[in-house]
């Protein structure tokens, strides 16, 4: 998802001023990283150029905060295409973590310790997310949950790999 697609989706719900757009974006999509104003202007300029949004009436003179943007037909089609296209599942086969395990095994270090350290790290992150989840609203909770489920999956992989370490070591060295 790009900032441009998010703007189009926000404008499809109703026409907005630039400031409005930034606020809405930060609320629903921004979370950790609020948008800079510069990003807002450049994105809007690009959308205008591509004919995906238009500016209302004669207010073309003032800054972007004073202008009201509306989505065009083409813009709506863009949003539609974005939603229709499923995300490609992320493949972590060559993830950093796996690389570390192989590295430890290759160099004769303790891969179990690597895994344990990673477990601790993951668990700490999960505890932090769980704590935050307890304080936020539903949107926060769901976001945190998303992360938690991912981390949980990693952890399971860690546990699973820990069981097969000896076998893996033989293959790597042999």
């Amino acid at each position: 998802m790009t900032i441009a697609t998010a703007f189009l989706a926000l404008l499809e719900s109703r026409p907005r001023h630039g400031y409005d757009l930034k606020q809405a974006y930060d609320q629903h999509f921004g979370h950790d990283r609020p948008l800079h104003y510069g990003q807002v202007y450049t994105t809007l300029a690009k959308l205008l150029r591509n004919g995906l949004v238009t500016v209302d009436g004669d207010e073309t003179s003032g800054g972007p905060d004073r202008k009201r943007y509306t989505v065009t037909e083409a813009g709506v089609t863009d949003v539609q295409r974005w939603l229709e296209e499923p995300e490609t599942p992320q493949q972590y086969l060559q993830s950093n973590l796996y690389a570390k395990v192989i590295g430890a095994l290759l160099t004769g270090r303790s891969a179990a310790a690597v895994l344990d350290a990673q477990r601790d790290e993951h668990l700490t992150a999960m505890r932090e997310l769980t704590r935050r989840k307890g304080q936020g609203d539903l949107a926060d909770r769901l976001i945190c949950d998303h992360a938690l489920f991912h981390l949980d999956a990693d952890l399971r992989w860690l546990e699973h790999t820990a069981v097969h370490l000896d076998e893996l070591a033989e293959q790597v060295r042999g």
Partner: peptide, 27 residues
């Protein structure tokens, strides 16, 4: 054995084969 449940805790220990080993260093 569910990490998401364990994440409710402030601190965790792990039991393996009846032992609660202290963490070994990555030598």
């Amino acid at each position: 054995h569910d990490a998401r449940i364990a994440a409710y805790a402030d601190r965790g220990i792990v039991v393996r084969d009846g032992r609660t080993p202290a963490r070994a260093g990555i030598r």
